[in-house]
Design a protein around this nucleic acid. Structure first.
Lengths: 167, 167
DNA sequence: CGGGCCTTTATGGGATCGCATGGGATTTGA
DNA sequence: TCAAATCCCATGCGATCCCATAAAGGCCCG
């Protein structure tokens, strides 16, 4: 497995520690996190949500790539740099697979007693469980619409064509 | 056989385990189930039914393909990512061909004592038996109508199509 | 054509392993 | 020296593996 999938909810203990889901850890290790010290978990406030984005080397490279696409010294680039790099924290993962979330990050995502880890393929997000529930419901209803568009033929793309159309 | 066909109903035991019908297992294996590391069963709540959708690598690729077409950091992509990846669970299949359904999935499909596995070609669904009975009855009556249309002369392809509901 | 054996498959239960979690010990930095 | 962060070990629960039993269906042989 080389992508973050599924969602898991873990508790924050008295010391502020949270276990990263074992399957996510596996992805991170394969991603170049090798050894632990060198790598680390890249983590920053989501740009458009009350949540945190996190990932391994691959995610870091992606951000680099994104910036590389913009002209040097452009305002756009500066803004993105600040928005992305400025708030990035490299969290270390302890021997038991746990991290400690710095105060500013916890504040941004409203994290308190527990964290929902949400796999999004190449990265994952960390949400306050109740907030995520709401977000998921919203995403679901929007996808209903998107789907109807697919079915209507605006987006052929894939083979069988049917996919969800059924039902 | 490389498509999921027919319907089978199996029990959920005290530990929450269910046997996947042998013929479905065969399809999964042929689907590259072996290749995909820690290969498993991709499973998520049906977007428009009180049931679960499931499939193998082929289904996973389809989801990826859908997302690949959207630009990074677009709202659209975020929505889909959350709705799809976030809800998707990768269930592992034990040595006896059984899976355990996580609580949230069981809740969505109202699964309790037994599960009806319904082949839909490239994927299959898991229904609460009684709910599926009702659904099937409904599908039947609709097919009656469709049939009259056929008879009227339209004559579509019928690739064994869905409706597989039959046993 | 019929009967019995043998393989496949579903299901149940016991044992084991891994993971999340909690608490103490130890080190680091001020 | 004290506080805070880090490491290490203990534990409980849930998940996973393995084996046993049973029912069903297919096959071979009479």
């Amino acid at each position: 497995m080389d992508r973050f999938v599924s969602t898991f909810t873990n508790k924050i203990d008295a010391k502020g520690r949270v276990s990263i889901p074992a399957s996510f850890r596996a992805v991170l290790e394969r991603d170049g996190y090798a050894g632990g010290i060198a790598g680390g978990l890249y983590c920053y406030p989501s740009l458009d949500a009350q949540a945190l984005d996190a990932g391994g080397e691959r995610l870091a490279k992606k951000i680099d790539g994104l910036l590389a696409g913009l002209p040097d010294y452009s305002d756009e680039r500066d803004e993105l740099s600040v928005a992305l790099y400025g708030d990035v924290q490299v969290l270390s993962i302890d021997g038991d697979g746990r991290i400690v979330l710095p105060e500013n990050l916890r504040a941004h995502a409203n994290l308190d007693a527990a964290v929902s880890f949400v796999g999004l393929g190449e990265k994952f997000q960390m949400w306050e469980p109740k907030l995520f529930e709401a977000r998921r419901a919203e995403a679901r209803s929007k996808v209903q619409v998107t789907r109807k568009l697919f079915a209507a033929g605006s987006r052929p793309s894939n083979d069988g064509g049917d996919e969800g159309a059924r039902e």
